[in-house]
């Protein structure tokens, strides 16, 4: 095998050495990085710059040459508000409704996500019957397309859905789950937790399995109660993993769009309109198409995501350093 590899290695070595002689060892790295950097610049950096340019220009035209420079006017329009806690007092009330909804959505979603994922991971870490099957069951929703997830739950919760059929079968009145603002919002949080919980459960399960067994054996020898074992051993040792899970869920939560949009369309009214839907509708579905306003909103969102990503990096670093 090695005899076969050596000539191949020599074949690669010849141009490599030539390139090294030509550019020098320091510059050689750039030779390899350049193609990737060009692609990154073209598909990531350029759109970011363009987005910024759109945010600083006005009108409903898409070509930059037709868009007058308006400075920070789009940001000013979004920020124009008498009371930030009351969207009705804001010039762009839909934006602030979306911001409010997103904040509450993220708080609830991350809380429930981490809580349920932890409980599920703890259960799946036990020696229970058909453990492999249950691990697959909890992970399965992660594999589904967000639109499929939304349609499944829409069918369950609609007026003549399975849930209402069940309630009527038990002698209760049916309920219009998706026509009530609070319930529609609650179900949107539930749907999102249901769809993504498996992923976070898997991370926490890996974290649980990384905790050395001998610590638990020592706890058993000390006659520690299960609660004390969990509180004093499992939780502190799992905390770095939980922190990563929390930040990841936070970032993902802020970015939520597709499943909730397909589930409720942002309604009833604007009860489940999240920030990404606002950006999409302002830029692409509305009339006139306000690309500048949508770009400004997306930049505000990007700043929030950068902060959250920084938090994640910090948490990961802290975790790595112990």
């Amino acid at each position: 095998m090695l005899g076969l590899l050596l000539p191949v290695m020599r074949l690669i070595e010849v141009p490599m050495l030539a390139a090294q002689r030509r550019f020098g060892i320091q510059k050689l790295a750039w030779v390899f990085l350049t193609p990737n950097l060009i692609l990154f610049a073209l598909f990531a950096f350029l759109p970011i710059i363009l987005n910024l340019v759109y945010a600083l220009t006005g009108s409903d035209q898409i070509l930059l040459r037709d868009r007058p420079f308006v400075g920070l006017e789009n940001f000013g329009t979004l920020a124009a508000c008498e009371n930030y806690l009351d969207p009705n007092s804001c010039e762009k009330d839909f934006f602030w409704r979306a911001v409010h909804n997103t904040v509450v959505f993220v708080i609830l979603q991350v809380g429930f996500m981490v809580g349920f994922s932890l409980i599920t991971a703890l259960v799946l870490n036990q020696k229970i019957r058909a453990r492999g099957f249950f691990r697959s069951v909890f992970f399965f929703p992660v594999l589904l397309s967000p639109v499929v997830v939304a349609l499944i739950w829409k069918w369950i919760l609609q007026r003549q859905g399975i849930l209402n059929a069940g309630l009527e079968g038990l002698g209760y009145d049916s309920f219009l789950w998706l026509l009530d603002r609070q319930w529609a919002f609650g179900w949107s949080v539930f749907l999102s937790v249901w769809a993504h919980m498996g992923f976070y459960t898997l991370i926490l399960l890996a974290g649980l399995q990384a905790i050395p067994r001998d610590v638990y054996e020592a706890a058993v020898m000390d006659a520690a109660s299960p609660f004390r074992t969990f509180y004093r051993i499992t939780l502190p040792l799992l905390m770095p993993t939980m922190l990563v899970v929390m930040v990841l869920a936070l970032i993902k939560g802020v970015q939520t769009f597709d499943e909730v949009y397909a589930f409720t369309g942002g309604g009833p009214g604007s009860a489940t309109t999240l920030i990404i839907q606002y950006i999409y509708e302002t830029g692409f579905a509305g009339a006139p198409r306000l690309f500048g306003l949508a770009s400004a909103a997306s930049i505000i969102l990007a700043v929030v995501l950068v902060v959250l990503t920084g938090l994640q990096l910090w948490a990961t670093k802290k975790n790595a350093n112990g």
Binding site: L178, L179, T264, G265, G267, P268, T272, G286
Partner: peptide
Amino acid sequence: ARDVWGGSGGTSYQ
């Protein structure tokens, strides 16, 4: 029927 106008949000047609 509340389901039509009251069941959706944004500019979606129903």
